[in-house]
Amino acid sequence: MSPGNYQMNNQCIDPEIGILLHAYELKLLDEENATRFEMHLLKCRYCFEEVQLFSEESDILHADNKIKNLTAKEAFPGFVKRLWRYLWPEMPVIFRPVVEILIILLIAVPAWFVFHGRGEKQVRPIYTIALMPLRSAPESGYKLSSGADVLLNFVYENAAPQKKYRIEIRDKSGQEFYRNDSFAGFDKYGVGQLLVTRNSLKAGIYHMIIEDPEDSSNLNRQEYYIPIMP
């Protein structure tokens, strides 16, 4: 029978003292605790075998100069090394902060463009102009805010919904600015709406003509002037 085989050797008989194991190996214990642990070694086979098995390693760990240099370097790493350790620690790749940050960016950036960018376009301001039928060009005009598209509201008497009308807008020099031969945007009250982008509208007076192509009478024509201030 081998010495001390009356006790289990796969666990410490007194964990309260057994916890001092590695501190003892590294010679960190004060005299009182070192004595306690050494007396424990006479009783506890597990701790004794652990000390025996790891003695060479703990000697190197405690006294080897190369290990000392390595430890000193690792104990006080530089900023870059610390940052890198923080971003790329020893753990499964998927849980490393760099990967997590990349995943968040991959999701967040497109989402920002989708929700923020598109939303901005959707709520782009619109400047509404209710046109009044006039015989000649007015002296005053509309001053449009920059970036706002223009919604023209106009009336064509007896216009029928879904029916196609011809709309033509010319600038002061008579050059065609807009033409639509099949405009079907009138409601049941004869009110039509036309959206014009702000960028295409320059300062000046525009002449708008609305006609029913099927009607050849003289009262067929409705004219508006759209004066835009610079």
Partner: peptide
């Protein structure tokens, strides 16, 4: 030491 920098610190102090 990468996983437990505090271990490096303790050994260094020892």
């Amino acid at each position: 030491y990468r996983v437990y920098p505090r271990y490096a610190r303790a050994i260094n102090l020892s």
